[in-house]
Design a protein around this nucleic acid. Sequence first.
DNA 1: TTTCATGCAAAGGTTTTGCAGTCGC
DNA 2: GCGACTGCAAAACCTTTGCATGAAA
Lengths: 138, 138
Amino acid sequence: MSRRNVKITKKRQAILDVLRATDEHLTAENIYFILKRKNIKIGLATIYRTLDLFYRNGIVNKINIGDGTIRYEYVDKGSVHHHHLVCIKCGKVMEYTDEKEPEFLEGLAKRIKEKYNFTVLSHEIYLYGICKECNESE
Amino acid sequence: MSRRNVKITKKRQAILDVLRATDEHLTAENIYFILKRKNIKIGLATIYRTLDLFYRNGIVNKINIGDGTIRYEYVDKGSVHHHHLVCIKCGKVMEYTDEKEPEFLEGLAKRIKEKYNFTVLSHEIYLYGICKECNESE
DNA sequence: TTTCATGCAAAGGTTTTGCAGTCGC
DNA sequence: GCGACTGCAAAACCTTTGCATGAAA
């Protein structure tokens, strides 16, 4: 399935705009209220359906930090692959990129293949800890 | 909070036994039915409460592969830290350890600290792909 | 017209909570 | 007896689904 198969309607465009306008990782409900504030009336179900569609077409990533809700982020094809820093104090999710990570992951995939005959297709890395602000406010 | 603060009742012991007896990653419901088969009558709510207690005390890990349910695994303090291989075909979750990973993660935590002033306390790595069996059955 | 998108409400599944009863020290 | 643990049922929560309406080609 590829991106060109996705028809972009007005509602879908609105959701896409919200996701592209932020660095944050939004839940379906976040998007719902952001659009409401912009006077765009849309059903939650439509947002869920759209996000699922986007996900299946590689337009957004799902982020699951384990708090019971799914977050989404726009996949910018031109940007570097990144992972997530989750602050266990304030719950904020930040992105990071690490220059040595791609090389490590490539080697890791190779070793996993040899050792377990498991073909790695994608990965998610979550680092949990204390963010700058929470560090400072102690 | 530390492990010694957790009182181990009969029901809690039963849950712990189930988790220690398997390599699999069990949901609360899995545990419920396993105990039922052993003729141990226990409420689902108790299992949830116990797992949450165990989690807060570092006795179990939460595994969230994004399918809407939380899985748990016993934390064996003596064993090597491992991560997860999730098969996107059959949904099976396996564990792996990689000899180069600890060194990489140590360096990564240091770089994250320098670059973002984020203190890394723990991490989760999920590798998604196709497992041995699903590879072979194609 | 025909197809697909949408909104609403209801249903679904997992997890949490309130409360009364029970256990163990 | 007291405090903590447990079971049940109900509630809460997020997400999906069914169906009728509406928009677009």
